[in-house]
Structures are given as structure tokens and as C-alpha cells.
Simulated scan of single mutants.
Amino acid sequence: MTINIAGLPRERIVFETSPLGELCLALHALAEPGHHPGLAGWVTATAAALRPDLADRLQEADFLWRTTFSDLFMPFAGLRGGAVSPGATLADELDLLDRLDDEQFVTTALEFSCLALYNEGGGTSPLTDRAARTRALEQAAARGPRQVEFTERLLKDPASVRAWVRRLFEDCDDAFFADIWQRVEPRLAADARHKTELLRRKGLREALADVSPALVLEDGGTRIRVDKLAEGRTTALDPAVGPGLTFVPSHFGWPHLMVLHRPAWRPVVHYPVGAHELPAPTSVDLLKLRLEALAHPVRMQVCRSTARTAHTTGELAGVLGISAPEVSRHLSVLKKAGLITARRRGRYVLYQLDVRAVARLSSEFLEGILR
């Protein structure tokens, strides 16, 4: 995923907190606790304390945060007229959400069934085009009855759904979010200040590295590449919405690193402020390399033999019943993937499986596909 920043003034790159964005990830953690094992205690306690009516209403719209991380939670990025910052409070950001016009609100809320509008940056609106409306309803039907009901309500009466959504978020604030935001906001604000100072003193490359190793400055500083399995491109210089790139820290975010790349919206990078003990994320390319390396049955046998003790190429050839050159080719693939270590003993080279690297594969795979 890439973000074009060629010619973007440094002052248009900002690090700021967003209570509405953090609410999105808190709701996601409640809906998908398996993504966030470190939050199990909070999820259990919060879910148990929810009023039944609020829990039911959250289920009605959980597709907005369970899988898609709806851009409705970043309304400041879609407002016209230059860079608009997130609100200082949840109420401020809900006011920004109210400023989106019906066209923006509907197409954003229907992201789960209008992906063509997002990825292709074109198409017609289901509010005004009968074919687009039919397509949105058909795609919602494939997702389930709750999505159909929500889509029908939204297309028929956007104003009432907008009021319903705002009230839902306000009730979440009363029920649990105000307390959690009061606890996490100081840390997030401190991180934003630190990144801002790093940007000022050492430049964007250093600031990006501090956000995540998955962010890399490329093409002479004109493009940011985000190492994700998802594909997309956006620009921080769209004249329709005004220049700007916003980085938003999150307490609830890990392992997700999200990039808002909706056409005609300013890009937003929503990044986790992780604990120091969390490992650096493995690149998607390395993850693919490791999975491909282990997909071959002979290399699986090499791993089995070298997991027990170190072997030379000749020893492995004898164990596996293949030629030494064949063993060398398989060892080369495993070494390139970082799964085999080599050490010299006299005139021999001993190869052994890096058990720790293999043990991390499941978590690396999960982190890579959820990033």
C-alpha cells in the first residue's frame, strides 16, 4: 500500500489522537477478541457490564468495525476545505461526522457492500442510481440479514440512521469508553508529541521508523510504502479535499496497522502504540518466503532432521536419500527465509533449524494478515 507525498509541506504531516478512532478499535476488540489476546480481561469485563439493549444495538452494526474498520470513524479526513484535525473529544468528532454530507456518509457506511466505490474511486452512488442501489442491496444480502436491514434503512432514510449511529456512539461513551479514554489518552498524546518532535528534529524517515518498521520512505522521499497484504494507493495531495497526512496512535490497535485510502479523503495511518516487549513486525515478503520455503516436502524433512541436531550437507543427503547438490539447494531456500542457521566446524558446515523462528511463524502469520 502506498501514499504519495511528493511536494507535501512538512507542516501538513501531523500526529494527533482521535477518540472516535479509538472507539472504533475498542468496539473491534469487543467484537473480535481473538485478534487481541492481550485485551482478554478488559473485553470480558466490559462485555459483561454492557446493558442488554446496548449490546443488541452494537450487534446490529458490528460490521462497521468487526472487519472493515469503517472510515466513518475518521470523518475529519473526508471534510473539504483544507486539513481538518480530529476532535479533542468524542463529542467534537461526532460533530465532524455530522458535517459529512449524505453522499459521503452513505457510501462510507456501505463500505462492506460498495467496495468498488472505495477501491476504484469511481462508480455511481446508491442514493441516486438505481443500478448502484440494487447492487448494494445484493451485496448486503450476501453478508447477512442485519446488513440488508441496515442498508435498506440507510438508503431509505439516511438522516434517521445518522442519528441512530451518533446515539449509539454516545451511549458507548457513557457505558465504558469515557473511562477507558481518560486512562489511555495521556499515553497516546505523549506518543503523538514524541513523534511530532522526532519529525521536526530528525525528519520523516526517522518518524516513520518509530511508528512501525512496516512504514518505509521510498522514491527519494516522495512516497510512503506500508507493508501490508492489502493493496491500495492514495495521495496526500488530492486538491478535492486539500493536502494532509494524519498519523493517529492507538492503544487498542495492535496487531492492526490501518491506512485510510478512500478516494477524495486525506490519508490516515492508524498505528498501534505497542508494549516494548512486542516483537518487531515481520515483513510480508519475509512471511511469504518462509511459508513458501516450508511448503516443499523435502524441506519439511530437512527441518525435521535439523530440529533435533545439526547436520552437514553430506549427512542430510544420506538421511534424505538425495544428492548433496539437491540438499544444498533446499538449504539455500531455508537459509534465505531465515529458518536455518549455519556454523562452521573445521572444514564442515553444520546446519540447524532455528526453532525460535519457526515457533514464531503462527503469530507472524496472524499479525501479517491482520496488519
Score class of each variant (00 low, 15 high):
V268A: 09
S18T: 03
Y351C: 02
G144H: 05
A61E: 06
L8C: 05
T128E: 06
L316T: 01
L110V: 07
A29R: 05
R167W: 02
P145D: 10
F76K: 01
E367I: 13
A190V: 06
H28C: 08
L154G: 10
E120C: 11
A40G: 07
S323C: 06
A140K: 03
P297V: 07
R66D: 11
A6H: 15
V302M: 09
V319P: 01
R143T: 05
L30D: 13
E111D: 07
E138D: 15
V106N: 08
A307F: 12
L23V: 10
R371V: 12
L350F: 10
A310I: 02
H296L: 13
G82M: 09
V161F: 11
G318W: 02
V259W: 01
A47S: 12
S283W: 04
R51Q: 14
D171L: 02
L353Y: 00
D227R: 14
I322D: 03
A140D: 03
H330N: 13
V148F: 06
S160H: 09
D129H: 12
D219T: 04
T235C: 01
F176R: 06
V226Q: 06
H256L: 15
D219W: 05
L245I: 14
R225V: 14
L117M: 11
L353T: 15
R343I: 10
L64S: 06
A230S: 13
L96M: 00
I322E: 01
D92L: 00
H251S: 08
W254K: 11
L215C: 12
R130C: 03
D173V: 07
S363E: 15
H296F: 10
G78V: 00
P52M: 04
S125E: 07
R153Q: 11
Y118A: 07
E326H: 11
R304Y: 11
R360W: 04
L257V: 07
P9C: 13
D92P: 02
R10D: 10
A131P: 00
F365R: 15
L350I: 06
D95V: 06
Q59L: 14
F177C: 02
L54G: 11
A55D: 12
R290C: 12
D174K: 15
H311C: 12
D285F: 08
R10W: 01
L198E: 05
A131L: 15
N119G: 08
R308L: 13
I369M: 12
E138W: 06
R12Q: 13
A49I: 03
G346M: 09
R262M: 00
D210W: 00
K195Y: 02
L257S: 06
